[in-house]
Computed example of a mutant assay.
Amino acid sequence: MATRQSGPIGRPRGFDAEEALERAMLFFWEHGYEGASLAGLTEAMGISTTSMYAAFGNKEELFRKALDRYTEGPSAYLARALEEPTALGVAAAVLAGTVRTTTRPAHPHGCLGVQGALATGDSGQAVRDLLAAWRTNGCSQLRDRFQQAVDDGELPPEADPGLLARYVTTLAFGIAVQAASGIGRDDLQEMADAALRSWPLA
């Protein structure tokens, strides 16, 4: 008597999770957290709401995963900039990276980490807090790098690493907002170059 073969346990996912997450990141980047409806997200991702919840969790969890992808992808210029041999090189690389990332023709303009939750209701408080922590973490990494430059004598001893870090991050966030408003890449880079002409040197 023939035996019946058992099929695979569970249904195959049927979609590329990495590709779906990439599309979700771009959708959040363009519309912000609150502006990204579930219907819009799932349509952009090419999956059903049921599949989205099964693969990524709820909207907030999906956003957290999208922000991680943004950090490791479009925003990875920060990690590369920290490896520059001089503090001025770090600052210049951060601003140049911001200009490039926020003005790419094939991507939404602006920065997911800056504009992602500028206007949200009470339900978006956790996402606002998440993005505030994301921005603070970037500033802290710069502060530590500039402290190293002071310790190494590459920045003058009176330089304030925390102030310099806030200066660079404020410039970067301003660039992102300007880019989202339609200011062009050349104009933004010119502004970044001008802002670094007063950089302290040992």
Rank of each mutant, 00 (worst) to 15 (best):
Q141F: 07
E60H: 11
R4K: 15
A2M: 08
Q189Y: 04
A17S: 15
L188W: 08
V127C: 00
Y167R: 14
P85K: 05
L188T: 07
L196T: 09
T71K: 11
T86L: 06
R64Q: 12
E34P: 01
L163N: 05
A76Q: 13
V150N: 12
G73W: 14
G182Y: 06
E190Q: 15
T49Y: 12
G174M: 08
G97K: 05
C111M: 06
D151N: 09
E72D: 11
K65Y: 04
T102K: 13
L164S: 02
G35C: 03
D122H: 10
T102P: 06
A81M: 07
P105S: 14
L118V: 06
L88N: 01
P74Y: 15
F27T: 08
I183P: 03
T103N: 15
E154R: 13
R69V: 07
A91W: 01
L41H: 00
S6T: 12
V177D: 03
D186M: 12
P156S: 10
A66C: 03
E72T: 13
V127Y: 01
C139G: 05
G10D: 06
L82D: 05
P74K: 11
G113Y: 02
R128A: 07
M25K: 15
S140Q: 14
A54M: 10
G57Y: 07
L62E: 02
R69G: 07
T98H: 03
G110N: 07
A76I: 06
P156E: 09
R145T: 11
Q147C: 09
K59Y: 02
T71C: 06
N137Q: 05
K59G: 02
S51K: 15
G40R: 01
L95K: 03
R23S: 05
P156W: 05
G121P: 15
G116F: 00
A195M: 09
A96S: 11
H109N: 14
R64W: 02
A149W: 02
Q5H: 10
A133L: 02
T42D: 09
G57E: 12
N137E: 09
L78M: 11
